[in-house]
Write a protein that binds this DNA or RNA. Structure first.
Length: 258
DNA sequence: CCGGATGTTCACCT
DNA sequence: GAGGTGAACATCCG
């Protein structure tokens, strides 16, 4: 589930962490730690206080007095604060919250905890992540940068929008929804896009994110329910097309997405 | 049992 | 480096 909208919900839901001091780290799963190990994480973070919580794309940034902790949630990760999930339900993940899936836990001076609960283990924790690997955040990317990206790279439009190095935060569902809203086929080469299309895309992006955030997340798009056999375009009734684009399952309307 | 899943990375091509 | 493809990671769900 987590695309940038969900990570933003996580970030806001984790506000109560600010001001707490870490007294212990449990990192039972070495594989979950990226570019570090349990010893280094523990020695760095124990004694550190949480200053603030940030986000770039799908990466949550927990600023502490000792280091920036990068939290990635993969497909099924969710933070538990004091054993409570920060949002009620995680679509496409398990309905349970098995404590065995707590891949990383920070204990605080007030007795509370932050746990990364992640059944599939596709997320991870990193100290001082390299932010140069991420493009500008999709929510605030400006029109000029988007135009530059379309001129610079020649790939299927969906591939560009999914590439976190080019633009950070959009996932499979949000990209399909954005392309559906703007009438652009996901397979269409970025080099074939005309100015008007890129401007349309740019104009639709932030309002779409605002709207879907208010509705409840990435799975609240207008055509989400039509992802499936015999799904029909809510705009014109055409049968939705399904194919793999950029390695991802993709649905679009063959009539109005060109 | 099998296929697929809202993510990322790496390996291996051209 | 670009650009394309496919696999791998681990687990749950229908």
């Amino acid at each position: 589930m987590p695309e940038l909208l969900e990570i933003e919900m996580y970030r806001r839901g984790a506000a109560s962490l600010v001001g707490r001091t870490i007294v212990d780290i449990e990192a039972p799963d070495d594989w979950y730690l990226k570019n570090t190990n349990a010893h280094a994480v523990t020695s760095t973070l124990v004694g550190a206080t949480i200053d603030s919580l940030g986000r770039i794309g799908k990466l949550m940034l927990m600023e502490t007095t000792a280091a920036t902790v990068g939290l990635r949630f993969g497909m099924t990760g969710i933070p538990l604060i004091d054993d409570e999930p920060v949002i009620e339900e995680l679509e496409y993940s398990s309905k349970r919250l098995d404590p065995n899936w707590n891949r990383f836990v920070a204990r605080f001076d007030d007795g509370g905890t932050l746990a990364m609960n992640d059944p599939r283990r596709l997320g991870g924790v990193e100290l001082d992540p390299d932010l140069s690997k991420l493009g500008p955040d999709a929510w605030t990317i400006d029109q000029g940068h988007l135009l530059w990206l379309f001129g610079r790279y020649k790939v299927p439009t969906k591939v560009l929008l999914l590439n976190q190095k080019r633009i950070a935060g959009l996932g499979n569902l949000l990209v399909d929804e954005l392309l559906w809203r703007t009438g652009i086929a996901p397979t269409r080469a970025t080099s074939d896009a005309d100015l008007d299309e890129v401007l349309r895309l740019s104009a639709a992006l932030a309002p779409m994110l605002d709207e879907l955030y208010a509705r409840g997340g990435s799975n609240c798009g207008d055509h989400f329910s039509e992802r499936g056999a015999h799904g029909r375009c809510p705009a014109d009734g055409s049968e939705m097309v399904h194919a793999t684009v950029g390695g991802r399952s993709t649905w679009w309307c063959p009539t109005h997405q060109l």
